[in-house]
Amino acid sequence: MNWRLIKDKLIRQSFATLLVLSLVVIVIILVGLSIKSMPLLRAERLGVILTESVWSPMNGSFGFLPFIMGTVWVTFISLIIAVPLCVLASVYLVEYAGEALRKMVLPLMNVLAAIPPVLYGVWGVLFVVPFLSQYIAPIVGAETTGYTVFAGGIVLAVMIFPIMVSIMVEVLQTIPYELKAASLSLGATKWETIVKVILIKAKPGLIAAVVLGISRAFGETIAVLMVCGNIPQIPKSFFDAGYPLPALIANNFGEMMSIPLYDSALMFAALLLFVLIFGFNLISRLILNRLERKS
């Protein structure tokens, strides 16, 4: 064996080691978070933790429902805003817009994706929050500071625009031309073709894009934390404050560690986030991979 082959073998070994090590991170996160959440899980049944609505660590009461509902509300609002806008815009980009416009808009999506979360938060505080309290809330007769789940939802919606648009555009571009031609030649208008043929055909990919958007929204911490009020209550309307899970971790970690089980409860929150987002990501990536292989 000469030196070249030995070198090749050594490099293979070390590269493989790097690969294994960086994937072991998943295991470390999962095991670490599980170990740390055990004390809480031993003290209380999982069902109770997830459905109990009183959060009062001083009294040993760790109800996660307010935070889960906070996350659900902001995610839900962001989806109501973002999904129709993104579907319409992506369809326009693929079916109507020219190559020039596409080449201009898609890089802008990359810019939007590159903006750090904290800047979205600053924008939320400077614009969304006052806008909601001064203009929108009076219309529906609500009294609010503007720091609401609605504000969180709007900021999140803008944050998930880029990932949803870029994936939806990719998915729509895989629809074969023949399919459109068949529908158009039957006398359908372009819009009818889009609704009845293209969107139906693209459904799995579009759903995958939305699921990726959801998991991004679930995990987003700082931007939401800055605008949604952070009161541990179950929001009842768009104009109530909420307290999503990631904000709970960010706001309290490293403090009040002397309270029993507090640390464990926060780690449980992180575990919950990790498992949910891992699952969502896995599902949507599997769908997208299958679509890619088909085309």
């Binding site: 995990g219 490293g254 926060l266 986030l273 990790f274 896995l282 990536r285």
Partner: peptide, 21 residues
């Protein structure tokens, strides 16, 4: 696939586990 999934894990989870370690 796993790297795609890791890409989506929010930084707060990384932060929390790193802090604990």
């Amino acid at each position: 696939l796993l790297f795609d999934v890791l890409f989506g894990i929010p930084s707060i989870v990384y932060g929390a586990i790193a802090f604990s370690i």
